[in-house]
């Protein structure tokens, strides 16, 4: 299996620019996610994807990466309202063109002798890895750009039974670029 060059470099060409990435540092307290989700719901802001995990400072803070639809409301409004949540500690806004975005895709695909070869080709082309195998199925993993995950997802559509999960993206500014606070 040869390593396939990564097809995307963080810029998601199919993602309209109206998507903005907010990297939000929050206190790791009960109900914080509900506060964020509730705010978006009541103000009519759309969330495109959301990823949450404990942040660098250990258990005290979490980082929430929210991809927002900046056409549902001006980004300034979204950031301004989000900033008023007392549990929100810091917000950085990473514009899509300055962002390095990654997400994780896991998919279990039923295969048989007839289609296993083409599946392996798809996996190899996508730069994905096989993480589990049994007689009738394989589970593959791709840690890649959202665009790369989209491509793999489309390629797997031809298989009869696919169970597929994606995490939503996390992001950092590209080197030399900064997020605006």
């Amino acid at each position: 299996m040869s390593a396939t060059p990564e097809p995307f470099l963080g810029v998601i060409d199919h993602t309209p620019v109206r998507h903005h990435i907010l990297s939000v540092l929050v206190e790791n307290k009960a109900g914080v996610l509900a506060r964020i989700a509730g705010l978006f719901a009541r103000r009519g802001f759309n969330i495109y994807s959301l990823a949450v995990a404990p942040a660098e400072s250990g258990a005290r803070f979490s980082r929430v990466t929210i991809v927002v639809d900046a056409e549902s409301a001006p980004l300034e409004q979204i950031v301004g309202q989000l900033d008023k949540l007392v549990n929100v500690v810091a917000i950085s806004d990473i514009s899509p063109k300055d962002a390095l975005e990654r997400e994780l895709l896991l998919a279990t695909i039923k295969t048989d002798v007839d289609n296993r070869t083409s599946l392996l080709d798809i996996i190899a082309n996508a730069g994905a890895a096989i993480v589990d195998v049994d007689a009738k199925s394989v589970t593959v993993m791709l840690a890649g750009t959202p665009g790369g995950c989209d491509e793999l997802e489309r390629a797997l559509e031809s298989f009869a039974e696919v169970e597929l999960h994606r995490t939503g993206r996390v992001a950092l500014p590209r080197l030399g670029k900064t997020a605006s606070a």
Partner: peptide, 8 residues
């Protein structure tokens, strides 16, 4: 005092 009021 509330910046979310600007341009709302």
């Amino acid at each position: 005092i509330d910046k979310a009021e600007f341009n709302k």
